[in-house]
């Protein structure tokens, strides 16, 4: 997939509401772009991301600030925050970008107060997304908790653009409360989804990586015809990478780091990577070298 043009743009908020219908933690915001921005985001591919300026966005009313974030909400927002996309569609000459997010700190909490008609400043699309090799027959998408959005995007993208690939998704979370989407519906397209929870409160009990491993063992498919795409907590990615590397299955993982700029100038988002044919390692940048990395190169 070719890298899209990028820039600093304004987007208009079309909607921003709870993504699961229950709880206050997961939200989906829909942004609409026109002109150059619409063109740039229409070319964005799954796994890319954008940096949103939330420094001027207001906090919710004091009584709506969760107890655990009250202290953090006293400070100003100095840096943008990176978000992946869970869907991108075009409508006439407009591009609609959907972002699924979780309230984890003072910036994402501010994001919940954006409402239809507001504008947000956004830098994107950034980084390198997932790539789709031509020789694969089965794509296994493995998400853990809040790692699902870029894979939801990828699942829809594959169904639309690579109909010959059989897509199977594994969506795991700690409990049934920790899915940022309705577990019955991973994507807009009809795709087989295996739901797992660590405590067994929904779907299969156990880590998503265990179920992936069992499925691969039972599938009888040629390793060279499969590809794994994964996004989620680092411990889960490490295990998925281990499974993929030991069985020689190509695997792309989307990493997460704190970022200041998102465009490669601050050098803040280091991911330790192996150098081919050497025992030495280097730090690659999550924003410009990633966020999607080959599972073989990342040092966990």
């Amino acid at each position: 997939m070719k890298k899209a043009n990028k820039g600093q743009f304004w987007g208009r908020v079309c909607g921003n509401k709870s993504a699961t219908g229950k709880g206050q933690c997961f939200y989906k915001i829909t942004l609409e772009f026109e002109g150059q921005a619409a063109k740039a985001f229409a070319k964005a591919v799954p796994g890319q991301f954008a940096e949103i300026d939330l420094s001027k966005t207001s906090l919710p009313a004091a009584e709506k600030i969760p107890e655990g974030l009250k202290d953090a909400c006293k400070r100003d927002i100095i840096l943008r925050r990176p978000f992946s996309f869970c869907d991108i569609t075009t409508k006439g000459n407009k591009t609609i970008v959907e972002i699924l997010y979780c309230v984890v700190g003072p910036a994402s909490l501010r994001m919940t107060t954006l409402k239809a008609g507001d504008t947000v400043n956004i830098i994107g699309p950034l980084g390198n997304g997932f790539s789709i090799p031509k020789d694969k027959k089965t794509a296994l998408l493995v998400s853990g908790g809040m790692g699902s959005p870029p894979l939801q995007h990828l699942a829809d993208y594959l169904v639309k653009n690579n109909p010959k690939i059989n897509v199977l998704t594994f969506a795991g979370a700690r409990t049934k409360e920790h899915f940022p989407f309705n577990p019955k519906r991973f994507t807009k397209q009809k795709i087989e989804t295996i739901i797992t929870t660590d405590d067994g409160s929904a779907g299969l009990k156990g880590f998503v990586s265990e179920h992936l491993e069992r499925w691969i063992e039972k599938s009888g498919q040629k390793e060279s015809e499969m590809i794994i795409y994964a996004c989620g907590p680092e411990a889960m990615l490490a295990r998925v990478a281990e499974i993929a590397n030991s069985s020689n299955i190509e695997c792309q993982i989307s990493m997460e780091r704190r970022m200041a700029c998102g465009i490669g100038v601050c050098q803040g988002c280091a991911v330790e990577c192996r150098l081919e044919g050497s025992s030495e390692t280097v730090y690659k940048m999550c924003c410009t070298d990633g966020p999607v990395f080959d599972a073989k190169e990342v040092v966990f």
């Binding site: 400070r75 100003d76 704190r258 601050c266 280091a270 390692t281």
Partner: peptide
């Protein structure tokens, strides 16, 4: 220069810390 391990940055009250290590 390889630079320092991650995490290299953190936002603070009205600022940020960085320890890139001259990568």
């Amino acid at each position: 220069r390889k630079g320092n391990p991650d995490p290299r940055i953190v936002e603070t009250d009205a600022g940020m810390l960085n320890a890139i290590g001259l990568a």
